[in-house]
């Protein structure tokens, strides 16, 4: 109890930082990932390079990715920017892949009907394919968000703040309470995000 009263403010502040990192990174990843996912449904020759890039990003160990980014000018350096770039790179794969899969799994008969009725490619995309793919796309966003909340704890290693600060400090001074002060709120954030986005996803998924 004593611990909590002493650290309450700091925990709240770190949670805020943590959430900001994740929200900014996820928002940018959505803005990049969904158009890329749409693009590879239109230009199949780009599918392998784009999905390949996103795949490779996922295989780089997270701590190493943060390390790689540090010396890069503009996007690197100590602070939140490096962390956000790393989180974006991790979030891209689930978002691009689910956008692609969501659109490609639209019933071909529905696409045929839309085209046959005289929809332009844009109308087909906006009025038919994206609404029908929305549930799958949101599932990708949900996965990306939950992964980011976990990964953002490492952001403290590049001085970006967040709940990882407690964990790194706790590890350094061998204090379990400090580690938990970072880990428990991070876990709660992940569960809450998963629950909320799961609910939205179910609301927006179209019944067949």
């Amino acid at each position: 109890m004593n611990f909590l009263t002493r650290y309450a403010n700091e925990i709240l502040q770190s949670t805020g930082e943590h959430l900001t990192l994740v929200l900014v990174a996820t928002a940018i990843a959505i803005l990049i990932g969904i158009p890329l996912g749409i693009l590879i449904t239109r230009k199949p020759q780009l599918r392998t390079p784009i999905l390949g890039f996103a795949n490779v990003m996922q295989t780089i160990p997270s701590l190493a990715l943060f390390g790689f980014l540090l010396p890069i000018p503009i996007i690197g350096g100590i602070g939140a920017r490096t962390a956000i770039v790393a989180l974006i790179l991790y979030s891209l794969l689930p978002i691009i892949r689910n956008t692609y899969v969501g659109i490609m799994s639209v019933d071909p008969a529905i696409r045929e009907a839309g085209r046959g009725l005289g929809m332009t490619d844009r109308q087909l995309l906006l009025q038919v394919e994206l609404p029908l793919a929305l549930g799958v796309i949101l599932a990708g966003v949900r996965v990306a968000t939950v992964i980011s909340i976990g990964l953002a704890t490492i952001a403290a290693a590049v001085g970006a703040g967040g709940l990882g600060t407690f964990i790194f400090r706790g590890v350094a001074v061998v204090d379990n309470q400090l580690i938990l002060a970072g880990a428990v709120p991070a876990a709660i954030l992940a569960l809450v995000a998963d629950f909320i986005l799961g609910w939205v996803e179910r609301r927006l998924t179209v019944k067949k």
Binding site: D107, E112, A113, L132, V206, K207
Partner: peptide
């Protein structure tokens, strides 16, 4: 245009 699978928009 009418097709066998109908292709109504489910949403």
């Amino acid at each position: 245009y009418v097709i066998q699978e109908v292709g109504l928009f489910p949403h």
